[in-house]
Design a protein around this nucleic acid. Structure first.
Lengths: 247, 247
DNA sequence: CGGGGGGTTGATCTCCTTCAATCAACGTGG
DNA sequence: CCACGTTGATTGAAGGAGATCAACCCCCCG
């Protein structure tokens, strides 16, 4: 794979697509300026490993565009993805200097990075940042716990449906179809990455996708494009409470 | 089961066993006094459900003594434990008014509670509390992710060994035995609760404990007391990196 | 044209679940 | 004091969901 030289670019925080959802969401003009002063962007090609577990890590960052994965590997090679990082998600842990997980770009990726020391200093005197980070971390914890239910108790079929539902909700392009609302999107992960996320083998992932296709729950256009003709039907397959959430 | 009337008691923060590890760890004398003013203790019997998923929750709390479990249940009854709360762990989420998980006392339990509104107000003007809560939440997130690896990729045998290792480390009474250091403790969970934590059935839990016993990795004294003659041997069975951590 | 990465599908195996019987410890009421 | 029910745990037998091993396809690219 050709290593892509991290691109240098600049973007005003005011024009940033994740301005209102990232760690900086609550910052006022002055605070934003201080972040602006210490930030820098980096871009990576799909498939690139940015950080290996155990690496020294001297920055923290926000995902601006693209998707990254966070995973853990056992000595014998078994790996489990422990986080899927979407735009506005935060990477790294203030107060820790080595990575515990490996970080891989699942798609072309751009991150807004801050060297750790200045960021920590800024955080210490800027409650808005710490507050927002706490909020985001609590949300992450909830997602991790939701994933624990999936990993521990859901069937392969339910796991696949749940993952597709996540992508469908976030990445959705709404289409008008006869009757219900349908949704289409591109899978940002390979079968293997999906398997690592779902605690399955890639063969099982492939098979279950085929089953859902055969039964008409989804339509495949090529290997990566998914059409969900009836979102409610897909939700039924996830095993989750149907009522609770709004969608 | 006899419902235990929550006991009323009082304890000076200065004498509190979790004083230096809970949310209040970083508070100075004045801040501590403000917490002292709004806190109250409650105690519960083993087995009692304190909160049902979906319940209104108008307090947050710290576990003082005992163990509580946090779990999620699907409509058809499959349940997954998503957190094991030990002394000093924090319960509840500031800024949310309904519980997302059910909270059950696994052993006799005492909690130090704060009504949510006053606590939130105090947190807003006391960075020491917010900072500590962020730190604790980040730790929780790491544990959740470690558990994702266990749920997604470990074998039943490794799962049991991992759980026993957790108890052995926290609850350990060191014993001198011929040669290596051995450890003994009481299991605070039923086989069913262990199964819910590990994503297994209770039968599998029982069988794997029997296997580990048969092979001499552990010794059972009654149903609940576990002796680990050789801690390193148990660690080998967890599937985790042997080097990394100190123990 | 050859090679490699990503994906699908088939055959077989195995680990864990499911269903069921049994047991020990304990409390309770006749 | 003992029969009875209950709760937590162990163990066995049978079945199945998903893993493993392997062949093959498609497509892109050098």
């Amino acid at each position: 794979m050709a290593i892509m030289e991290p691109a240098l670019m600049h973007l005003d925080c005011a024009d940033c697509p994740i301005r209102h959802r990232a760690v900086c969401a609550r910052c006022d003009g002055d605070e934003l300026q201080q972040l602006e002063d210490i930030k820098y962007y980096r871009s990576y090609a799909a498939g690139q490993t940015l950080i290996w577990s155990g690496d020294k890590m001297d920055f923290v960052a926000s995902v601006v565009t693209g998707i990254a994965t966070l995973s853990q590997t056992m000595e014998d090679g078994r790996t489990q993805m422990v986080g899927l990082l979407l735009p506005s998600d935060f990477v790294g842990r203030p107060g820790r200097d080595r990575a515990v997980y490996s970080l891989v770009a699942a798609t072309p990726l751009t991150m807004c990075c801050f060297r750790k020391k200045p960021f920590e200093a800024l955080m210490a005197r800027t409650p808005h940042i710490a507050q927002r980070l706490l909020e985001m971390t609590l949300d992450e914890l909830d997602s991790a716990r939701e994933w624990m239910l999936l990993l521990g108790r859901k069937t392969a079929r339910e796991k696949i449906a749940s993952l597709l539902a996540i992508f469908a909700r976030r990445d959705a392009e709404l289409m008008t179809s006869g009757g219900g609302t349908s949704v289409a999107f591109d899978l940002p992960l390979t079968r293997e990455a999906m398997a690592d996320y779902l605690g399955l083998t890639l063969e099982t992932v492939s098979r279950q996708i085929s089953v859902l296709k055969r039964e008409g729950v989804i339509i495949l256009e090529g290997k990566r494009r998914i059409v969900v003709p009836d979102m409610e039907r897909l939700m039924d397959e996830t095993g989750d409470d149907t009522d609770g959430g709004v969608y």
